[in-house]
């Protein structure tokens, strides 16, 4: 979503993005002309008249599980967004019985919060697990 019109979205997809992605952008490119949606989401920069780089992960119940906002010159890390979605999906599937510690990615162990884990996290999680292998 940006402040560009849907007409500009069409031209951008046709002339440039479809040369990066086969078949063009597969998801809807939304238009937020006056920045109203961006204002509600707290990421519209009224002085510059543009949206900043806000990214919101919304679960199937419509709950915001996470967000990230960057100033325009720095791009996002898509792999990190996907990792967060996978983590939120795992937690949801476990109905909250599992949690993903720092550095978790698919295949790494989760934590099972409960009275037995109090003061014992060090037995399950080591600091090197915060980093990629």
């Amino acid at each position: 979503m940006s402040v560009d019109s849907m007409f500009v979205h069409k031209m951008w997809d046709e002339t440039e993005l479809s040369k990066m992605v086969d078949g063009g952008i597969p998801f809807p490119m939304l238009s937020d002309g006056a920045g109203r949606v961006g204002t509600i989401y707290g990421i519209y920069d009224a002085d510059a008249g543009v949206e900043t780089r806000g990214r919101f992960i919304i679960d199937p119940d419509g709950i915001i599980q996470g967000y990230e906002v960057l100033t325009p010159p720095v791009g996002r890390n898509v792999a990190e967004s996907l990792r967060q979605i996978q983590a939120f999906q795992l937690v949801r599937a476990s109905k909250g019985t599992e949690a993903t510690p720092s550095g978790w990615k698919p295949g790494k162990p989760t934590l099972k919060p409960g009275i037995d884990l109090v003061g014992k996290v060090y037995t399950e999680w080591k600091t090197d697990m915060a980093f990629d292998d």
Binding site: R55, F56, I58, P60
Partner: peptide
């Protein structure tokens, strides 16, 4: 699951 992304401009 929805990812809502804002960006400065086309």
């Amino acid at each position: 699951w929805v990812v809502l992304c804002f960006y400065p401009g086309d």
